[in-house]
Simulated assay, not measured.
Amino acid sequence: MTDEERPHEFSSGQGLDEDYEEFTLDPEELNADPSQVDPVDTRVITDLLDERNIAKEQVDTESLIDVGLSYMGINRFEEATETFGRAAQFAEDDSLAEQEAWVNKGVAHAQLEEYDEAIGAYREALRIDDDSEHAASAETNLAYALYEFGESEEALEHAERAVEIDPRFAQAWYNRGFFLVERGLLEDAVNAFDNAIRLGMRNAEVLEEKARALDELGEEEEAEAVAERAEELRKEAEQEMVEEFEEG
Protein backbone atom coordinates (compact mmCIF):
# COMPACT_ATOMS: atom_id res chain seq x y z
CA MET A 1 0.00 0.00 0.00
CA THR A 2 1.45 3.34 -1.06
CA ASP A 3 1.58 6.62 0.86
CA GLU A 4 -1.09 8.05 -1.46
CA GLU A 5 -3.43 5.19 -0.63
CA ARG A 6 -2.98 5.32 3.14
CA PRO A 7 -3.82 8.53 4.91
CA HIS A 8 -1.52 9.59 7.68
CA GLU A 9 -3.11 10.51 10.95
CA PHE A 10 -2.29 13.86 12.49
CA SER A 11 -2.60 14.60 16.16
CA SER A 12 -6.13 14.47 17.49
CA GLY A 13 -8.10 17.61 16.79
CA GLN A 14 -5.34 19.14 14.66
CA GLY A 15 -6.20 17.82 11.21
CA LEU A 16 -6.21 20.18 8.25
CA ASP A 17 -9.38 21.12 6.45
CA GLU A 18 -9.16 21.38 2.67
CA ASP A 19 -9.69 25.13 2.90
CA TYR A 20 -7.19 25.84 5.67
CA GLU A 21 -6.78 29.47 6.61
CA GLU A 22 -3.67 31.43 5.74
CA PHE A 23 -1.04 31.44 8.44
CA THR A 24 1.67 33.69 9.69
CA LEU A 25 4.97 33.32 11.45
CA ASP A 26 4.13 36.34 13.56
CA PRO A 27 2.68 35.09 16.85
CA GLU A 28 3.16 37.62 19.61
CA GLU A 29 6.08 35.71 21.10
CA LEU A 30 8.14 35.81 17.88
CA ASN A 31 7.23 39.35 16.80
CA ALA A 32 8.57 38.99 13.23
CA ASP A 33 7.80 41.56 10.55
CA PRO A 34 5.97 39.59 7.80
CA SER A 35 6.91 42.26 5.26
CA GLN A 36 10.57 41.45 5.82
CA VAL A 37 10.48 37.63 5.80
CA ASP A 38 9.15 34.79 3.69
CA PRO A 39 6.10 33.54 5.65
CA VAL A 40 6.87 29.93 4.67
CA ASP A 41 10.51 29.86 5.68
CA THR A 42 11.28 27.84 8.81
CA ARG A 43 14.72 29.45 9.02
CA VAL A 44 12.88 32.55 10.24
CA ILE A 45 11.67 30.58 13.25
CA THR A 46 15.13 29.13 13.85
CA ASP A 47 16.91 32.48 13.57
CA LEU A 48 14.43 34.31 15.77
CA LEU A 49 14.49 31.75 18.52
CA ASP A 50 18.25 31.27 18.48
CA GLU A 51 19.04 34.96 18.15
CA ARG A 52 16.94 35.97 21.10
CA ASN A 53 17.66 32.84 23.15
CA ILE A 54 14.03 32.69 24.19
CA ALA A 55 13.17 30.62 27.24
CA LYS A 56 10.72 27.77 26.83
CA GLU A 57 7.96 29.52 28.74
CA GLN A 58 8.12 32.46 26.35
CA VAL A 59 7.46 30.41 23.22
CA ASP A 60 3.91 29.74 22.04
CA THR A 61 4.32 26.05 21.24
CA GLU A 62 0.78 25.74 19.90
CA SER A 63 1.51 28.44 17.34
CA LEU A 64 4.59 26.55 16.18
CA ILE A 65 2.53 23.38 15.83
CA ASP A 66 -0.06 25.30 13.81
CA VAL A 67 2.70 26.56 11.51
CA GLY A 68 3.94 22.99 11.07
CA LEU A 69 0.44 21.80 10.20
CA SER A 70 0.14 24.60 7.68
CA TYR A 71 3.38 23.46 6.06
CA MET A 72 1.88 19.97 5.84
CA GLY A 73 -1.15 21.45 4.11
CA ILE A 74 1.02 22.84 1.31
CA ASN A 75 3.26 19.76 1.09
CA ARG A 76 6.31 21.49 2.58
CA PHE A 77 7.26 18.43 4.60
CA GLU A 78 10.91 19.23 5.27
CA GLU A 79 9.95 22.58 6.74
CA ALA A 80 7.24 20.82 8.74
CA THR A 81 9.73 18.41 10.32
CA GLU A 82 11.93 21.35 11.38
CA THR A 83 9.01 23.30 12.78
CA PHE A 84 7.62 20.36 14.76
CA GLY A 85 11.12 19.68 16.03
CA ARG A 86 11.31 23.27 17.28
CA ALA A 87 7.90 22.90 18.91
CA ALA A 88 9.05 19.76 20.71
CA GLN A 89 12.26 21.52 21.81
CA PHE A 90 10.48 24.52 23.32
CA ALA A 91 7.49 22.70 24.77
CA GLU A 92 7.41 21.93 28.46
CA ASP A 93 9.28 18.69 29.10
CA ASP A 94 7.08 15.59 28.74
CA SER A 95 3.96 17.68 28.18
CA LEU A 96 1.04 16.90 25.88
CA ALA A 97 2.23 19.71 23.62
CA GLU A 98 5.65 18.09 23.28
CA GLN A 99 4.01 14.75 22.58
CA GLU A 100 1.77 16.28 19.92
CA ALA A 101 4.78 17.88 18.24
CA TRP A 102 6.61 14.53 18.13
CA VAL A 103 3.58 12.75 16.64
CA ASN A 104 3.25 15.32 13.88
CA LYS A 105 7.00 15.34 13.28
CA GLY A 106 6.74 11.63 12.66
CA VAL A 107 3.92 12.17 10.17
CA ALA A 108 5.99 14.72 8.26
CA HIS A 109 8.95 12.33 8.10
CA ALA A 110 6.64 9.55 6.88
CA GLN A 111 5.41 11.79 4.08
CA LEU A 112 9.06 12.11 3.03
CA GLU A 113 9.40 8.30 3.30
CA GLU A 114 11.93 8.83 6.08
CA TYR A 115 10.50 5.95 8.08
CA ASP A 116 13.45 5.49 10.43
CA GLU A 117 13.08 9.10 11.59
CA ALA A 118 9.30 8.73 11.75
CA ILE A 119 9.60 5.65 13.95
CA GLY A 120 11.96 7.50 16.29
CA ALA A 121 9.54 10.42 16.58
CA TYR A 122 6.57 8.19 17.37
CA ARG A 123 8.55 6.24 19.96
CA GLU A 124 9.56 9.50 21.62
CA ALA A 125 5.90 10.56 21.72
CA LEU A 126 4.95 7.26 23.36
CA ARG A 127 7.82 7.55 25.83
CA ILE A 128 6.19 10.75 27.09
CA ASP A 129 2.81 9.07 27.64
CA ASP A 130 1.53 5.82 26.18
CA ASP A 131 -2.07 6.37 27.26
CA SER A 132 -2.81 10.03 26.50
CA GLU A 133 -5.13 11.64 23.97
CA HIS A 134 -2.29 11.54 21.41
CA ALA A 135 -1.14 8.00 22.16
CA ALA A 136 -3.55 6.24 19.80
CA SER A 137 -2.42 8.44 16.91
CA ALA A 138 1.21 7.73 17.80
CA GLU A 139 0.57 3.98 17.91
CA THR A 140 -1.36 3.78 14.64
CA ASN A 141 1.19 5.93 12.81
CA LEU A 142 4.03 3.91 14.32
CA ALA A 143 2.36 0.76 13.00
CA TYR A 144 2.27 2.22 9.50
CA ALA A 145 5.90 3.36 9.61
CA LEU A 146 7.07 -0.02 10.92
CA TYR A 147 5.21 -1.78 8.10
CA GLU A 148 6.88 0.44 5.51
CA PHE A 149 10.20 -0.23 7.25
CA GLY A 150 9.68 -3.99 6.84
CA GLU A 151 8.67 -4.74 10.45
CA SER A 152 5.15 -6.06 9.74
CA GLU A 153 4.88 -8.29 12.82
CA GLU A 154 5.65 -5.44 15.21
CA ALA A 155 3.36 -3.20 13.14
CA LEU A 156 0.35 -5.37 14.02
CA GLU A 157 1.23 -5.18 17.71
CA HIS A 158 1.08 -1.39 17.63
CA ALA A 159 -2.12 -1.41 15.55
CA GLU A 160 -3.68 -3.58 18.23
CA ARG A 161 -2.43 -1.22 20.92
CA ALA A 162 -3.99 1.78 19.14
CA VAL A 163 -7.40 0.09 19.22
CA GLU A 164 -6.98 -0.75 22.90
CA ILE A 165 -6.20 2.87 23.74
CA ASP A 166 -9.08 4.32 21.72
CA PRO A 167 -11.68 1.81 20.51
CA ARG A 168 -13.55 4.63 18.73
CA PHE A 169 -10.58 5.55 16.54
CA ALA A 170 -11.67 4.55 13.03
CA GLN A 171 -8.19 4.86 11.51
CA ALA A 172 -6.82 2.45 14.10
CA TRP A 173 -9.42 -0.17 13.17
CA TYR A 174 -8.60 0.29 9.50
CA ASN A 175 -4.89 -0.21 10.18
CA ARG A 176 -5.63 -3.27 12.30
CA GLY A 177 -7.72 -4.75 9.49
CA PHE A 178 -5.00 -4.11 6.92
CA PHE A 179 -2.31 -5.83 8.99
CA LEU A 180 -4.64 -8.75 9.80
CA VAL A 181 -5.17 -9.31 6.07
CA GLU A 182 -1.40 -9.36 5.65
CA ARG A 183 -1.25 -12.09 8.31
CA GLY A 184 -4.07 -14.07 6.70
CA LEU A 185 -6.50 -13.47 9.60
CA LEU A 186 -9.28 -12.59 7.20
CA GLU A 187 -12.43 -12.88 9.33
CA ASP A 188 -10.92 -10.69 12.03
CA ALA A 189 -9.85 -8.26 9.32
CA VAL A 190 -13.40 -7.97 7.95
CA ASN A 191 -14.67 -7.27 11.47
CA ALA A 192 -12.02 -4.57 11.90
CA PHE A 193 -13.00 -2.90 8.61
CA ASP A 194 -16.67 -3.04 9.64
CA ASN A 195 -15.79 -1.29 12.89
CA ALA A 196 -13.92 1.42 10.97
CA ILE A 197 -16.95 1.92 8.72
CA ARG A 198 -19.35 2.07 11.67
CA LEU A 199 -17.13 4.72 13.24
CA GLY A 200 -17.44 6.93 10.18
CA MET A 201 -14.62 5.84 7.87
CA ARG A 202 -16.71 5.52 4.72
CA ASN A 203 -14.29 5.90 1.84
CA ALA A 204 -13.08 3.87 -1.11
CA GLU A 205 -9.91 2.68 0.63
CA VAL A 206 -11.56 0.88 3.52
CA LEU A 207 -14.12 -0.74 1.21
CA GLU A 208 -11.40 -1.89 -1.18
CA GLU A 209 -9.51 -3.54 1.66
CA LYS A 210 -12.70 -5.16 2.94
CA ALA A 211 -13.44 -6.45 -0.58
CA ARG A 212 -9.93 -7.92 -0.76
CA ALA A 213 -10.41 -9.75 2.55
CA LEU A 214 -13.83 -11.06 1.50
CA ASP A 215 -12.46 -12.26 -1.82
CA GLU A 216 -9.66 -14.17 -0.10
CA LEU A 217 -12.29 -15.69 2.20
CA GLY A 218 -14.14 -17.00 -0.83
CA GLU A 219 -17.07 -14.60 -0.36
CA GLU A 220 -16.90 -13.56 -3.99
CA GLU A 221 -20.44 -12.20 -4.37
CA GLU A 222 -20.22 -9.96 -1.32
CA ALA A 223 -16.67 -8.94 -2.26
CA GLU A 224 -17.87 -7.84 -5.68
CA ALA A 225 -20.70 -5.77 -4.20
CA VAL A 226 -18.32 -4.05 -1.78
CA ALA A 227 -15.80 -3.40 -4.55
CA GLU A 228 -18.52 -1.81 -6.70
CA ARG A 229 -19.48 0.49 -3.86
CA ALA A 230 -15.81 1.41 -3.42
CA GLU A 231 -15.60 2.35 -7.08
CA GLU A 232 -18.74 4.49 -6.76
CA LEU A 233 -17.22 6.36 -3.82
CA ARG A 234 -13.96 6.88 -5.69
CA LYS A 235 -15.81 8.36 -8.66
CA GLU A 236 -17.87 10.59 -6.37
CA ALA A 237 -14.68 11.85 -4.69
CA GLU A 238 -13.07 12.55 -8.06
CA GLN A 239 -16.14 14.45 -9.22
CA GLU A 240 -16.10 16.56 -6.06
CA MET A 241 -12.45 17.42 -6.70
CA VAL A 242 -13.27 18.49 -10.26
CA GLU A 243 -16.15 20.67 -9.08
CA GLU A 244 -14.04 22.29 -6.37
CA PHE A 245 -11.29 23.00 -8.88
CA GLU A 246 -13.75 24.59 -11.29
CA GLU A 247 -15.31 26.70 -8.53
CA GLY A 248 -11.92 27.74 -7.17
Rank of each mutant, 00 (worst) to 15 (best):
E4T: 09
E5H: 08
H8K: 09
E9L: 15
F10K: 04
S11T: 14
G15P: 00
D19I: 04
D19L: 09
Y20T: 10
E22P: 12
E22G: 12
E22N: 10
F23A: 06
T24P: 14
T24F: 07
L25S: 02
P27S: 09
E29W: 15
L30A: 02
N31I: 01
A32N: 10
P34E: 06
V37Y: 03
D38N: 15
P39Y: 00
V40D: 12
D41M: 02
V44I: 11
V44T: 12
T46E: 12
D47H: 12
E51N: 14
N53M: 13
K56I: 05
K56M: 06
Q58P: 01
E62R: 10
L64A: 06
L69M: 11
M72T: 03
R76S: 13
T83K: 05
T83D: 05
G85R: 03
R86T: 09
Q89P: 02
Q89W: 05
D93P: 03
D93K: 13
L96Y: 05
Q99Y: 08
E100H: 08
A101F: 14
V103M: 04
N104Y: 09
N104C: 11
L112Q: 13
E114I: 03
D116W: 06
E117I: 00
A118F: 03
A118D: 01
I119H: 04
A121K: 03
Y122G: 11
R123D: 10
R123F: 04
E124P: 00
E124T: 15
D131R: 12
D131W: 09
S132L: 12
A136E: 01
S137W: 01
A138L: 06
T140F: 00
Y144G: 05
Y144N: 07
E148N: 10
E151M: 08
E153V: 14
E153F: 08
A155L: 04
E157Q: 13
H158V: 02
E164I: 07
I165E: 00
D166P: 01
R168I: 05
F169Q: 00
F169K: 01
A170G: 03
Q171G: 03
Q171N: 11
A172Q: 00
W173V: 04
W173K: 02
N175L: 10
G177C: 05
F179C: 01
F179I: 01
L180Q: 13
V181I: 15
V181L: 08
E182R: 06
E182N: 10
E182W: 03
G184K: 07
L185G: 02
L185W: 07
L186I: 06
V190F: 02
V190D: 02
V190I: 12
N191H: 07
N191E: 15
N195I: 02
N195R: 15
A196N: 13
A196P: 00
R198E: 13
G200D: 10
N203V: 03
N203W: 04
N203D: 14
A204F: 01
A204R: 07
E208S: 11
K210S: 07
R212M: 13
R212Y: 05
D215C: 07
D215G: 11
A225T: 08
V226H: 06
E228G: 02
R229K: 09
E232R: 12
E232F: 06
L233T: 03
L233K: 03
K235V: 10
A237E: 14
E238N: 09
E240F: 04
E240T: 06
M241F: 04
V242F: 09
V242A: 14
V242C: 02
E243N: 12
E246D: 12
E247T: 12
